[in-house]
Design a protein around this nucleic acid. Structure first.
Length: 108
DNA sequence: TGCATGACCAGAC
DNA sequence: CGTCTGGCCATGC
């Protein structure tokens, strides 16, 4: 377990239910520009059920990837369970469900 | 220590 | 749109 991972997991735990965030947002929140580093840390996913890593998606609003059990399909399923509609492998109103760190509430 | 890869991003064609 | 390139930081060997 690296400190960087802890930071990432902590950020993930900040994501409210029914909301999703992007690797870029996490990277920015951590103060780094390397979203890939974030992806790497999250990709490790040492504690899958402990961290809502399924609430993390690429800036494209698509599903991205998931190393958890069931893979991507499971990730989508979980998001739908959270109340996030998934269409064509993409989040419906992605920007609307998008959660930004250090932000009060971007509810429209 | 140095090299190669990654749950990505943004720009260019 | 779809496809390709460069870049960014951390990790593993």
């Amino acid at each position: 377990m690296t400190p960087f991972q802890e930071e990432v997991y902590r950020a993930l735990n900040l994501i409210p239910k029914g909301r999703v965030t992007t690797y870029g947002a996490i990277a920015s929140y951590l103060g780094t520009k390397a979203v890939r580093a974030v992806g790497t840390a999250v990709g490790k996913n040492p504690n899958a059920p402990k961290v809502p890593c399924h609430r993390v998606v690429p800036s494209t609003g698509k599903i991205g990837n998931y190393s958890g059990e069931g893979g991507v399909p499971t990730k989508i399923r979980l998001l739908k369970e959270e109340g996030i509609p998934f269409i064509n492998g993409k989040v419906f109103d992605f920007e609307k469900y998008l959660f930004v760190f250090n932000s009060i509430d971007s509810d429209v």
